[in-house]
């Protein structure tokens, strides 16, 4: 960690994204709270991990930040500019700085376009460069992500999954963003390919001064890569803090169970002593009070009364649990 105070690049306060649940007559019968009152700061130059199981709202959070989903409330400030309710021009200007890397880059590349055209596209939209200049920029970026020039002439289906991810990254990097939201960037890759992609992320971060928001369900990747982690459960952050602190002293029972569920080669077997039971409740019918109480082994009557806020009673760690100590 650096000694100077960290500079905030993105500040999220009380961000909400609710999806309406409608019945057959299109009448609203409830809300699905995908992102519920999330407050978070991302510091310049760090890697912030967002971790949680499927359906916990981590991708919705990323997409709401990007403006792909319209937020239902709350504020987002990016580089000292509010990100909510922008006009099209403003949001286009800002979106050069803030980029989103999709979960499946293979599906986000046009199958009928050669890689060259896909890489040119963002520059055509966002910059006034002519073809020669664009091509130069594209080639230098391609070099940075470790792809040969020859790949410019290929179609997406002709390259492997790992290479498609590199193209997806190159496409984002051509605009020189300052913050990239990486949504499950290594899911579906083999470990050996995953390792090369992860080291590529680290190299690029150094080279281009990037900040990452790293959304993943894979705790071992998060642990290795991230400086800080936010653990999400059903639309809420339940624990937030520095990676080492959280992984060594998880205080929220959900984080504890997540950590207990990762197989560690050479460690204790989870199949001998895994204790969490049940499955996450239906997100459209949340339990009262703390959302984790239906599965929590320590739950008391008090947990059903109110939803515990994030408490920062510990150094480098905030926990949303009434009973945590």
């Amino acid at each position: 960690m650096t000694t100077e105070p960290p500079q905030t690049i993105l500040r999220i306060s009380k961000l909400r994204k609710f999806f309406a649940i409608r019945n057959a007559w299109n009448r609203r019968i409830g809300w699905l709270k995908a992102v519920d009152d999330i407050s978070l700061e991302v510091y310049r130059g760090e890697i912030l991990g967002i971790v949680g199981e499927s359906g916990c709202g981590k991708s919705t959070l990323g997409k709401t930040l990007m403006g792909i989903h319209k937020s239902s409330g709350g504020e987002v400030v990016f580089e000292d500019q509010p990100l909510v309710n922008l006009t099209r021009q403003e949001s286009r200007r800002l979106s050069r700085q803030l980029q989103y890397s999709y979960q499946d880059p293979g599906a986000s590349l046009d199958p009928r376009w050669k890689i060259r055209r896909s890489l040119h596209e963002p520059l055509v939209i966002h910059s006034g460069l002519d073809y020669q200049e664009r091509d130069e920029r594209v080639k230098s970026i391609l070099d940075a992500v470790g792809l040969p020039q020859g790949h410019l002439e290929l179609y997406p289906h002709e390259i492997s999954g790992g290479q498609q991810r590199r193209v997806g990254l190159a496409r984002i990097l051509t605009l020189h963003p300052s913050l990239i939201i990486l949504d499950e960037p290594t899911s579906g890759l083999d470990v050996s390919v995953q390792a090369t992609i992860l080291s590529l992320f680290l190299d690029l971060k150094k080279q281009f001064d990037l900040t990452y928001m790293f959304i993943s369900h894979d705790l071992s990747v998060i642990r290795m890569l991230c400086d800080r982690v936010a653990v999400m459960y059903l639309g809420k952050i339940v624990e937030l803090g520095e990676t080492e602190t959280i992984f060594n002293h998880p205080r929220h029972p959900y984080t504890q169970s997540l950590l207990a569920a990762i197989p560690v080669i050479g460690g204790e077997r989870i199949t001998d002593n895994f204790w969490l039971e049940g499955e996450p409740p239906n997100p459209s019918a949340l339990p009262s009070g703390c959302r984790f109480r239906t599965r929590c082994p320590n739950a008391l009557a008090i947990c059903a009364e109110s939803d515990p806020p994030l408490r920062s009673d510990w150094p480098h760690q905030q926990v949303a649990c009434t009973l945590a100590e």
């Binding site: 492997s160 470990v191 050996s192 390919v193 995953q194 390792a195 090369t196 992609i197 992860l198 080291s199 680290l202 894979d218 071992s220 990747v221 642990r223 290795m224 890569l225 080669i265």
Partner: peptide, 20 residues
């Protein structure tokens, strides 16, 4: 051994298997 090395563990020495 290469497969075990590519498991995410240490930021400093993460490496995949070279080649395809």
């Amino acid at each position: 051994q290469k497969l075990l090395e590519s498991l995410p563990r240490d930021k400093e020495r993460i490496q995949g298997i070279p080649g395809d």
